[in-house]
Design a protein around this nucleic acid. Structure first.
Lengths: 211, 211
DNA sequence: GTCTATAAGGGGATAGAC
DNA sequence: GTCTATCCCCTTATAGAC
C-alpha cells in the first residue's frame, strides 16, 4: 500500500472538482450561450486553467451535454402534474405551478441554458424531449381530460394549458432581466416569486372554472 | 450627367440589398445566437460574400443592432394595451392577446433574437427597455388599476398579469420547437395559433373575473 | 460594388515536463 | 493533477485590385 493507493479520497476530490466545474459552466453557458461561452472563462470561474479543465472534461461539447443532463434530471423528477400530492384539480395544479416557480427561483441558470437550447431549435434535446418529457406530458394531458369528463373543470385544450404554465413560470428565470427592470429591482426576491405563484394559481384555478 | 449619376436607382438597390441581408441575419441570429452566427453564413444565405456584406454593414455588431432595432420598432407599435381598439377590459385584453399571438406567428425569428438577448442579461437592450418599453408598461398598468377600481375585474397584480401574457404568447415563437414536438407537428399551423389565442383569452378573461 | 488576399486574434484541443 | 508551450482552425475585419 504505497501513497498512491488512496483511491477513495482521490475520487471524492475529483467529484468535487467536477461539480465545481459544472456549476461554473452552468453560469457561463446561461449568460453567453454555447458558442459565446469559452472554456477559458469557465475554467477561470472555477479557478483552473483551461488545460486543467480539459483534463476533467474531454471537450466543451461533453461539458455542455453534462450541464444539460443535470438540469433535465432535476426537472424530470418534479415536473409531472401526476407527481403532485393530492387528488383534486385545485390542489394538484396549485402544487404544480408553485413547484415550477420554485425551480425558477432556485435554478434560474439551468432554466436559461435549457431555454437557449430550445430557442435554437433544440438540436441536442429533441431526442430527450421525445423520449422523456413527452410520455410524461401525455399522462398529464390524460389526467386533465379525466377531470374535464368528471365535470371538475371547464373543457379546455390541455396542451395549451401546459404551454401556458410552462411559459409563465419559466419566464421568472429566463426573462428575469426584463422582469427586474419592469419591477425596478436589481434582483428578484422571495416575495416576487411568491406573488407570481399567487397570481398564477389564482388565475388558472378561476380561469379553468375549478371549485 | 454621366452614367454614374443615377443616384436614385443605386440607392434603391442598396436598400433592397440591405433588407435582404437583414432578413437573412434575423434567421441566422435566431437559430444560432449572436456568437454562434457567423457573418459568413449570413452572407451565404443572402447570396453574397462576407467581404461584400461588410461593405453594407461595417461590423457584425452593427448588423446585429440593426436587426434588434427592426424587431423592437415593430413591437413598440403594436404592443400597448392602450393602443387596442375598444374601451372595455374584455375587448381590449382579447385584442392585446391575439395581437401578440399574431406577432409570434408572423415574426418568430425576431422574437427569438429578442429572447436570446433577454436571457443573456439584455446587455444591449436594457437602455431601450427602460426608455421605451417601461413607460408604455406603466401606462398599461395604470389602465388595469383603473379597471380594478371601477370593479370591472378582480384585484390582481397588473405586472404579473403582463408577464404572464408576454410569456404565454411569445412561447409560441421562442419555444416553437418544443411545442411542435409536443403537438406532433413539424410546424405550427394557423389553427394552432388560433387555438392558443382562444385558450389564452378565455383563461384570462374568466380568470380575472371580467364580465 | 464585388472580388482575392491577408492580417490579426481568439478559441478548442493536444503534447509533454513536472 | 497541474502546468507551459504549441498547434490549428475559424472568424472578424481590412487592403487593394478590378
Amino acid at each position: 500500500m504505497d501513497k498512491n493507493s488512496q483511491s477513495k479520497p482521490k475520487r471524492l476530490s475529483r467529484e468535487r472538482t467536477e461539480q465545481r466545474i459544472l456549476n461554473a459552466a452552468e453560469d457561463v453557458f446561461a449568460q453567453y450561450g454555447f458558442h459565446g461561452a469559452s472554456i477559458n472563462s469557465i475554467a477561470e470561474l472555477t479557478g483552473l486553467t483551461k488545460q486543467n479543465l480539459l483534463y476533467y472534461f474531454p471537450s466543451k461539447e461533453v461539458l455542455y451535454q453534462k450541464v444539460l443532463e443535470n438540469i433535465l434530471n432535476l426537472w424530470i423528477d418534479k415536473m409531472a402534474l401526476l407527481a403532485q400530492r393530492g387528488d383534486d384539480p385545485k390542489t394538484m395544479i396549485s402544487s404544480y405551478i408553485r413547484g415550477k416557480i420554485e425551480i425558477s427561483k432556485t435554478h434560474p441558470n439551468g432554466s436559461k441554458v435549457f431555454a437557449n437550447e430550445i430557442i435554437n431549435g433544440a438540436p441536442r434535446l429533441k431526442e430527450y424531449i421525445a423520449s422523456h418529457l413527452l410520455p410524461q406530458l401525455q399522462d398529464d394531458v390524460q389526467l386533465i381530460r379525466t377531470w374535464i369528463k368528471e365535470g371538475k373543470m371547464d373543457p379546455v385544450d390541455p396542451y395549451h394549458l401546459f404551454f401556458m404554465i410552462w411559459a409563465s413560470t419559466q419566464t421568472y428565470a429566463d426573462f428575469s432581466s426584463q422582469i427586474e427592470l419592469a419591477l425596478g429591482k436589481s434582483q428578484l426576491q422571495d416575495e416576487d416569486f411568491a406573488a407570481a405563484g399567487d397570481f398564477l394559481t389564482r388565475l388558472v384555478i378561476k380561469g379553468l372554472g375549478i371549485k
